[in-house]
Simulated assay, not measured.
Amino acid sequence: MATILVTGGTGTLGRLVTERLRADGHEVRVLSRRSPEHPVDLRVGGPALDAAVAGVSAIVHCASTQRGGDERSARHLLDAARRAGVPHLVYISIVGVDQVPLGYYRTKFAVERMIEGSGVGWTILRTTQFHDLLVRVFRGLAKLPVVFVPAGVPDQPVEVAEVAERLAELAAGAPVGRVADMGGPEVQTLADLARAYLRATGRKRPVVGVRLFGKTYREFRAGGHLAPEQAVGKGTFEDYLRARGGGSR
């Protein structure tokens, strides 16, 4: 079996990718700032990164943050991968990064382009939003007596464990470039998803759609972040809420 490095391996997605790969018999190196095995800040790089990358047959790059630094982190990782002769890097991205002009999406798209031009064999998977992201958003919004959501915006959340399984499958194979997007099983409005969250958590709040302005809002309303033709996920948002007691409230 292969030796595979998972960046962001202590995070929500990376932890599940690690578990899936180990269950399949692979040796996994977990890299993150909090990893006891390979405690590396990718924004800094250095000898510890080179040591983590040395001898692996693939890297699954899950490390990401909306606080900035993803491009610098990717540059350090790709440089280390080239020095070590790593044949395959798998990157998790987001559906719509090339359409929705959101700052974080633009960063993810820039990282995609860096990987494509790196000279390292690559595979990129774009998915729709994870269920737990919506729960975090709704949990914050539900602190008010009225839950305000962007009017007319659909979403297609996907189960993170299913994404982890797909990434593990891709990491065990050869580089194949951009693969088909992966979307959740249902497209629903944010308002309906918010109501589902409120029901599951026993909260009584009116949900009010607020019309926003700007190109980002227009692209979200138009569904630039959706993959309805790739609704391959099986777990619905309601399934997620039931399994986790309302998303841990």
Rank of each mutant, 00 (worst) to 15 (best):
M1L: 10
T3P: 06
T3M: 13
I4G: 13
L5Q: 06
V6W: 06
G8F: 14
T10M: 08
T10G: 06
L13R: 01
G14Q: 09
G14V: 12
R15T: 14
V17K: 03
E19D: 14
R20N: 07
A23M: 11
V28I: 09
S35V: 09
P39Y: 07
V40L: 02
V40F: 04
G46M: 01
D50P: 01
A52S: 01
G55R: 03
S57A: 09
V60I: 10
C62Y: 01
C62H: 00
S64N: 07
G68E: 05
E71C: 11
S73E: 03
D79A: 06
A80E: 10
A80F: 06
A80T: 08
A81Y: 02
A81D: 04
G85F: 01
V86W: 03
L89D: 08
V95Q: 00
Q99L: 14
V100M: 01
L102D: 09
K108N: 08
K108P: 08
K108R: 11
F109P: 05
F109A: 12
F109K: 11
A110I: 07
I115S: 07
G117M: 12
G119I: 06
V120S: 09
T123Y: 08
I124V: 15
R126C: 08
F130V: 07
H131L: 09
L134W: 03
V135I: 04
R136F: 13
R136H: 11
F138S: 10
F138T: 11
R139L: 03
G140R: 00
L141G: 03
L144V: 12
V146M: 13
F148S: 11
A151N: 12
P154Y: 15
P154V: 15
P157H: 04
V160L: 01
E162T: 02
A164W: 06
A164V: 06
E165F: 00
R166F: 14
R166A: 14
E169L: 14
E169P: 09
L170N: 00
L170W: 02
A171F: 04
A171S: 00
P175S: 14
P175Q: 13
V176T: 15
V176M: 13
V176I: 12
R178E: 14
A180C: 04
G183H: 01
G183D: 05
G184I: 04
T189K: 02
L190N: 14
A191M: 10
A194V: 14
R199I: 13
T201Q: 10
G202R: 09
P206R: 05
P206L: 00
R211W: 01
G214Q: 05
Y217G: 07
Y217W: 04
R218M: 13
E219T: 15
E219A: 15
F220V: 11
R221Q: 15
R221A: 14
A222N: 03
G224I: 09
H225I: 12
L226Y: 05
L226H: 03
A231G: 03
V232E: 07
K234F: 02
F237M: 05
F237V: 01
E238C: 02
E238N: 00
D239C: 00
R242A: 07
G246P: 05
R249P: 11
